[in-house]
Simulated assay, not measured.
Amino acid sequence: MATRPDPLTREVVELIGTVMARYHDEYEEAAAEYALTGSQARVLGLLSQEPMPMRRIAQRLKCEPSNVTGIVDRLEARGLVERRPDPADRRVKLAAPTDEGRATASRLRDALDFAREPLAELSAEERTMLRDLLRRMLGAEGT
């Protein structure tokens, strides 16, 4: 039989959920400003960090590779992403942002004020502590 979380744990979980919901809403709004869906914006953001094969994008987004193929197709049609051979394995295609894709991803990141504004109210020491606690909660996955 599972034990019920204590009130403090329940409150922390609810606060994390609220933060996630607000971030998701703002991300969707920012994406819409560029006529992108939230999923398209997330893929573009991932690819702006490094080109990657569809399978890895799907793993990072926790979705099916076929979904990623459709998203990349639409981004490619808009000139934001291109497919290119992987230099390490020419049989594998990498999705990579174009110059316009990188610029759009950068503008999207800059448009996300939700986290930046509240975090600015915390000292550097508090932000470091929060980062370290979140990394600890996520284990190796969060680093």
Rank of each mutant, 00 (worst) to 15 (best):
M1G: 15
T3R: 00
P5H: 13
P5T: 10
P7T: 10
P7L: 06
P7Q: 12
P7R: 14
T9A: 05
T9W: 05
V12R: 05
V13E: 13
E14C: 03
E14F: 03
E14D: 12
L15K: 02
L15Y: 06
L15P: 00
I16L: 08
T18S: 09
T18V: 09
D25E: 11
E29K: 01
E29Y: 04
A32S: 07
A32E: 03
A32K: 02
Y34C: 09
T37A: 07
S39G: 06
Q40D: 01
R42I: 01
R42A: 08
R42S: 07
V43S: 01
L44H: 08
G45L: 00
G45R: 02
L47T: 05
E50L: 00
E50Y: 03
P51G: 07
P51C: 04
M52S: 00
M54G: 06
R55N: 02
A58E: 09
Q59K: 03
R60W: 05
L61F: 05
L61G: 02
C63S: 09
E64Y: 09
S66W: 08
T69A: 08
T69R: 11
G70E: 11
I71E: 05
V72N: 14
D73R: 09
D73C: 14
L75E: 05
L75G: 09
R78K: 12
R78Q: 12
G79H: 10
G79K: 11
L80G: 07
V81N: 02
V81T: 01
E82V: 08
R84Q: 12
P87H: 12
P87K: 00
P87V: 10
A88K: 12
D89W: 06
R90G: 04
R90Q: 12
L94C: 15
A95N: 14
P97K: 04
T98L: 11
D99F: 12
E100C: 10
G101M: 02
T104R: 03
T104N: 01
A105P: 00
R107F: 12
A111S: 12
L112S: 00
D113Y: 04
F114H: 06
R116I: 06
R116H: 11
R116E: 11
A120K: 02
A120L: 05
A120M: 03
E121Q: 15
E121K: 14
L122T: 10
L122Q: 11
S123D: 14
A124D: 15
A124L: 14
E125R: 14
E125N: 06
E125P: 03
E126R: 13
R127Y: 08
L130A: 07
R131G: 06
D132W: 09
D132K: 13
R135P: 10
R136H: 12
L138D: 08
L138Y: 13
A140D: 15
A140W: 10
A140C: 12
E141S: 15
E141H: 14
G142D: 15
T143G: 14
